[in-house]
């Protein structure tokens, strides 16, 4: 494909035609903040944080959905861009709890990073805020809708696996929120707790329940491991604190990498010093089960015992 040369912040950048301004800037090492952009499922264009100034274009276009053109001039940090980004962060904070001190995501939160980067100390608006109960209805994922910034990454990643689509956007306007069918808690939905959504959530709206209270993000070292339970070869991360593995989290899901609960639990059993008790839903209730059952190995384990002659 033909190449296109454009100027970003005074720097000449050459990229293949059809590239987005965002990717072009990033390829040249120029930073543009994003919240809703997911390289695996691009083109959503909702958070508007990645807006840039392009002389000749009406308004400030979102760089994630604007394609480059020959000779295009892009300003990623002009006065108007900075004002807009600050205001958008300000608006998000106006509808977001300010409880960073106790938030599991503290230290690994995009909203926090950008607020720091653009110097938005606190919101300038004091009006209505979201007020949803905490969804703590299952043993794996904690959902705090009040922290949700509606970037939709969870919705899109859930829809990326055929047959899942457990969540979608519901309601409208200021009342928009991510919902399950009939807006039931996650524990009552068809969710299979693969936690792709947790892996992509940029804020603290979706977190791992088994990791809750076990440490701050900066105390954890991460180590990638590949799951060998099936041929998909999904990547997970060991979360290590003081030399001990305290939990398993999913790495960003890629195409053809479904991630699944069984795989995560298997790794939990393999690596974590004190693995959680596996829980499965039976008749609508989560109940503790044996590891063999959780991993779907009951028949095998029984047969192994039989063949090897152990009681």
């Amino acid at each position: 494909m033909a190449n296109v040369t454009l100027t970003i912040d005074g720097q000449k950048v050459t990229v293949p035609a059809g590239t987005t301004v965002l990717d072009a800037a990033r390829s040249a090492g120029i930073f543009i903040p994003t919240l809703c952009h997911d390289p695996a499922i691009p083109g959503f264009g909702a958070c508007r944080l990645c807006i840039v100034e392009i002389p000749g274009m009406r308004n400030l276009p979102a760089s994630c959905v604007t394609t480059v053109a020959e000779g295009m001039v892009v300003h990623t940090a002009s006065e108007a861009v900075i004002e807009a980004r600050r205001t958008i962060i300000d608006l998000l904070l106006a509808n977001h709890p300010q409880d960073c001190l106790t938030c599991e995501k503290n230290g690994d939160c995009r909203l926090q990073d950008y607020a720091f980067m653009y110097g938005v100390r606190q919101t300038s608006f004091h009006g209505e805020r979201k007020n949803h109960p905490l969804d703590d209805s299952n043993p794996y994922i904690i959902r705090d809708q009040n922290k949700c910034i509606l970037c939709g990454k969870c919705v899109r990643t859930c829809q990326a696996v055929p047959g899942r689509s457990v969540i979608d956007f519901g309601y409208r306007g200021f009342n928009t929120r991510v919902v399950t069918a009939m807006d039931v808690p996650l524990g009552e939905s068809d969710c299979v707790y693969c936690a792709r959504c947790v892996a992509v959530c940029p804020v603290g709206a979706l977190t791992y329940k088994p990791m809750a209270g076990k440490g701050r993000t900066w105390e954890m070292q991460k180590k990638s491991v590949t799951c060998t339970f099936c041929e998909s070869g999904c990547t997970f991360e060991l979360n290590i604190r003081d030399g001990k593995v305290i939990g398993i989290t999913a790495k960003e899901p890629g195409p053809g990498r479904p991630l699944c609960l069984k795989g995560r639990l298997g790794l939990e059993l393999l690596y974590v010093e004190k693995p959680m008790t596996p829980m499965l839903k039976k008749d609508g209730q989560f109940v503790p089960v044996s590891w063999a059952e959780a991993l779907g190995l009951e028949g095998l384990v029984d047969r192994m015992k039989e063949v090897e002659g152990q009681p």
């Binding site: 899942r164 457990v166 309601y171 919902v179 069918a181 009939m182 068809d190």
Partner: peptide
């Protein structure tokens, strides 16, 4: 189509 989508459309 996913039930969640039907619900999302109905509430929109």
């Amino acid at each position: 189509v996913p039930f969640s989508k039907v619900f999302g459309v109905a509430t929109f």
